[in-house]
């Protein structure tokens, strides 16, 4: 049995990726299982899905805590989510990233693979710059580096179950299959420990009242775009502050907006409402 955990963002298609993998494995004549973890299903929020494939019916119905393979649909999650938790030694970390595998951080002894799924998906017109739909591309890559499903079965599963643009998705899967790069296992790091960071944990308080401010939760990690404020053209009208649903803009002593990076989800409202258009939304990986 092979156990695969998918990490993506709400709206990116991680749950569908896991389901498509199961459908494709079934078409290959194997016994699959797939299910999502139900948490906060918000656009941009971290999402987890699980898949198991075996030649016999799957005899376990639990979350996957020690996966053989971890698939990361959005590279930003490497910084904010403990995607590598429980990944077995000799296991595989497959990341949507333009970086070569050797530059990916991974727990010790874990093999690394990368595919620039965002570029491939956009080349085939799948999704938008802020929310590329990379699930089919990365499944093509997964088929290549694990052999868990055949590319042919994956193509047929896409034809049957992808609601929109199946031809483009099939082509993206083929490109993912062709261009994925597999690297060496990660060498032990200097401090000897896995370097994948863990999620923020908060202490459990006494009593039944929830009273810890949510400001400790870094929803800034959800964003794919980030506002860039051109202070020179700012008229200090404070529209950006007024309309922000995430309270992610503060005004400094002079009335200029200051972005609260930990909170900004990159919705783009501030750029849209700014009368002199001094705010631009730029890719989160390039912005502040």
């Amino acid at each position: 049995m092979i156990e695969i955990r998918f990490h993506g963002r709400g709206g990116q298609g991680a749950v569908l990726a896991s389901e498509l993998l199961a459908q494709a494995a079934f078409l290959d004549g194997r016994s699959p299982q797939s299910f999502p973890f139900f948490g906060v299903e918000r656009r941009g929020a971290p999402v987890t899905a699980y898949a198991r494939v075996d030649d016999r019916p799957i005899g376990v119905r639990t979350s996957i805590v020690t996966p053989d393979v971890v698939v990361v649909l959005e590279p930003g999650l490497l910084r904010t989510t403990s995607v590598g938790d429980g990944l077995r030694t000799g296991g595989l970390l497959l990341v949507n990233s333009p970086l070569p595998p050797a530059r990916l951080e991974a727990p010790d002894g874990v093999r690394r693979a990368s595919v620039d799924a965002t570029a491939i998906a956009l080349a085939h017109g799948l999704g938008s710059r802020t929310m590329p739909i990379v699930n089919t591309t990365i499944l093509g890559a997964l088929a290549r580096v694990t052999g868990v499903v055949s590319l042919e079965a994956l193509g047929r599963a896409i034809d049957r179950y992808v609601p929109a643009a199946p031809a483009e998705n099939r082509a993206a899967a083929t490109d993912g299959f062709a261009s994925v790069r597999l690297g060496d296992p990660a060498a032990p790091s200097a401090n000897g420990a896995a370097r994948i960071p863990f999620a923020v944990t908060v202490p459990i308080p006494e009593g039944p009242l929830a009273r810890l401010p949510s400001s400790s939760i870094r929803t800034g990690s959800w964003r794919t775009l980030v506002p860039e404020i051109d202070e020179r053209r700012c008229t200090r009208c404070n529209f950006c502050w007024k309309y922000c649903p995430d309270d992610a803009i503060e005004l400094d002593g002079r009335g200029y907006p200051v972005l609260v990076l930990d909170a900004c989800k990159g919705c783009g409202i501030c750029a849209e409402v700014c009368p002199p258009h001094t705010i631009a939304m730029v890719a989160a990986s390039e912005g502040p």
Partner: peptide, 26 residues
């Protein structure tokens, strides 16, 4: 008095499988 006006505190709330069972155990 569990809820106190003028102070921060949410009674009821929601939890995942990680915390729910502790409430039931109490």
């Amino acid at each position: 008095a569990i809820l106190v006006p003028g102070t921060v505190g949410r009674l009821g709330s929601f939890t995942g499988p990680d915390r729910y069972v502790e409430f039931r155990r109490e």
